[in-house]
Design a protein around this nucleic acid. Structure first.
Length: 298
DNA sequence: TACCAGGATATGG
DNA sequence: CCATATCATGGT
């Protein structure tokens, strides 16, 4: 086991992030124990097992081991964690904006230091979004667990089995019945396998999507079968790290708005559009913070 | 029982 | 362009 320290911004609270990561007991891709986040990932064909814990106020302690260690492992892992915890974004303007907004200040300050926790892997981000379309989150986590345990790689670590999300190359070679057998709908099976094939071929890459404008990225993603406005914005938010990403149609957002604004029914799309005009390019963060007001969220 | 869940697509008007 | 049916299953 090797150790590295990672400096974190002032507007960072590991406990807030850990609470988010522990939001579902059905999560299949990590463990949380004794204030530590324990997980395995595949980064550039290096399988890495790591533990993250808070080290003082402004640092994370990261213990890690790799199956095929080389000198790039530490750098890959740091990059991964910087992405997951969004450590390069300055949240001061976000907190300044929301503090002056009567609606947003109600709940944003309750989660000070929470970063928008990301899904760095493009295929995982798409697959998770598609799995979650139109079903309740408990069932979505169940479907993900079946996919992960059936087709994902695994690592044994101190008596635990740590699963990795399946590689697109693996899913690309499946037939629909492999996924409908896990209780995916025929549509979702088709969508997930199709995206795996596109990513395997290189027709869709994270780098190319990140290199173009937000509007162009959304437009390009929506050409993919199974990807509508909600899914494109979810991926832009959680993987591409575009701050103006905004899943307008999100039921969780609707329910959160209904609760926060004390509405008697869920808000209309046009009302949400109007409301969000004052969110100054922080739509993704504000949506993420809205989700924290719900009992279950992702 | 009926309706809602992190929606998207196909089809008919 | 808008409305509706469909999807699979779990929760309420």
């Amino acid at each position: 086991m090797q150790t590295l320290l990672l400096r974190t911004p002032e507007e960072f609270n590991f406990q807030q992030c850990l609470r988010y990561l522990g939001r579902s007991a059905r999560e299949s891709l990590h463990h949380i124990e004794d204030g530590k986040w324990i997980k395995a990932v595949n980064l550039n064909h290096r399988k890495i097992i790591f533990e993250v814990s808070a080290q003082g106020k402004n640092q994370l302690e990261v213990k890690y081991t790799a199956r095929n260690p080389d000198k790039r492992v530490a750098a890959l892992l740091v990059n991964y964690l910087v992405e997951v915890f969004d450590l390069t974004t300055d949240l001061k303007p976000f907190y300044q904006l929301t503090a002056q907004d009567a609606l947003l200040s109600k709940f944003v300050s309750n989660h000070y230091g929470l970063r928008l926790i990301g899904i760095p892997d493009l295929f995982e981000a798409f697959a998770w979004a598609i799995i979650g379309q139109q079903i309740n989150l408990d069932f979505a986590y169940t479907l993900k667990r079946r996919l992960v345990t059936q087709f994902g790689d695994a690592a044994e670590y101190e008596g635990r089995t740590l699963y990795l999300f399946p590689e697109p190359e693996k899913i690309a070679s499946l037939s629909f019945t492999d996924l409908t057998g896990l209780q995916f709908s025929a549509r979702k099976a088709e969508y997930v396998i199709g995206i795996a094939q596109s990513i395997k071929k290189g027709a869709i890459t994270k780098e190319s999507l990140k290199s173009i404008s937000f509007e162009d990225a959304i437009h390009r993603m929506r050409k993919i079968r199974g990807v509508g406005n909600w899914t494109a914005n979810y991926v832009a938010m959680k993987c591409l790290r575009m701050p103006e990403a905004f899943p307008l149609e999100d039921v969780g957002l609707h329910n959160a708005l209904k609760r926060i604004m004390n509405l008697d029914k869920k808000p209309e799309i046009d009302m949400i559009k109007e409301l969000s005009k004052s969110w100054g390019g922080w739509q993704a963060y504000i949506t993420f913070y809205f989700w924290q007001t719900l009992a279950t969220y992702a």
